[in-house]
Amino acid sequence: MLLFIALANSHYFLLGERYVGGFPAGGSRADDAVAWLVSTFVDGRAFPMFGLLFGYGVAHIVRRNAALEPRVVNRILRRRSLVLVVIGLLDALLFYAGDILVMYGVLLFVGILLVRRSDGWLLAVAAVFFVLTALPGMDSFSISTDGPDAAALPPDLATMFAERSLVAAYVALLGPIGFACPFAIGLWAGRRRVLERPAEHRALLRIVATVGILAAVLGAQPAALLVAGAYDRPGDQVLELIGPLHDATGVLGGFGYASLICLLATRLRNRGVVAAIAAVGQRSMTCYLLQSPVWFVVFTPFLLGLADILTVATTALLAIGVWVASVALAEWMRHTGRRGPFEALARRVMYSAVR
């Protein structure tokens, strides 16, 4: 999924004469093919899986500390929220304007209200926010015709900090709306340890994997074919339907990906490449944050400034290379017994609450 995150984030930096869904239009056939693949399988599909896993992890923290008083557990969660907000703000201001850790931190701070609510509450909250995601007319990156702004490609440091401060505030305040549904479903699934005990939930996982991924692929096609140049840009009223369809089915796709990977994991032996990828998952915050300095150096106009040189296809190759490098680094950490530095920091801050 961190590979998908790299593919999803990097194409938004590219410059061009016109845009659809964050892709510069008018590229080569290879660019169009990559744009179709990313729009179909990646954009709006990877982030919901992380929202699900984030909620699942919160449920795990609550369950693991069940012997503690609820107020102490809440303090642990609030400290995790604080870590995410601080690290996310620094990343957003210094490296990548679209960082979502701030959003996760805010979501957790509010989501503490849900951790002890009934299953009915969780499913109701998930349903409400899923419907909000699917409402026609909602803003959607999947059909946006805007190119990269000064926050993504700042001409100087002063502009960078000024513009990115506004973007970070926007992401922190409005971002949780789009991730509340996966977060609530993650809490629900975490209570039942669905991903930890796949043998007990195999039928559910198979249904979610099949329906979720199929819905995501089919629901992406109006937007994916548009960004690939298969048809001309329709009117705004049509776009206002295409965007929410892409986003809502992407939420289902995120659930489907989580279920499929869980089912595959029961058949894979934890060694070699599989162990290396698992090592990335155990250091996911560190490996995620390693991507941001790369985008900063490669695309920022006063550094390498390759936003008008790289294409959709070559940027995808860059994203793959960055992810492969993170896998190699995580595997080295695993062999040398090193925990990810940001994971270690988060754990130290969180559990200082019980001392």
Rank of each mutant, 00 (worst) to 15 (best):
L77Y: 03
R271L: 07
V349G: 04
A220G: 15
T286L: 07
S81L: 05
I242L: 06
L187Y: 02
V171A: 01
G51H: 02
A30V: 14
G229R: 06
I112V: 14
L263V: 00
H246M: 10
T249Q: 05
E17F: 07
L241K: 08
V211C: 05
L132V: 03
P244L: 09
I277K: 08
L204N: 09
L204K: 09
P24W: 03
T336E: 15
A216C: 11
F130Q: 02
L84V: 02
S165A: 11
A59V: 06
G98D: 08
L290V: 12
G111P: 07
I76W: 03
R80I: 12
P48D: 05
A189C: 12
L113N: 05
V211F: 08
L239G: 08
A158Q: 11
T145F: 03
L135S: 08
T286F: 01
L263I: 06
S165L: 14
A199D: 13
V273Y: 12
E343M: 06
L195I: 11
A276T: 07
V125G: 01
G44V: 08
L303A: 15
V354W: 09
M103Y: 00
R29P: 13
L77N: 10
G219C: 03
T311R: 00
S118R: 03
A134L: 03
R63S: 15
Y257W: 14
S39G: 07
L173P: 00
Y231H: 07
G243H: 04
G340Q: 00
A330V: 01
R347H: 14
T249H: 00
L218C: 10
L113R: 13
S10D: 08
Y351M: 02
G235K: 02
R197G: 06
S10T: 09
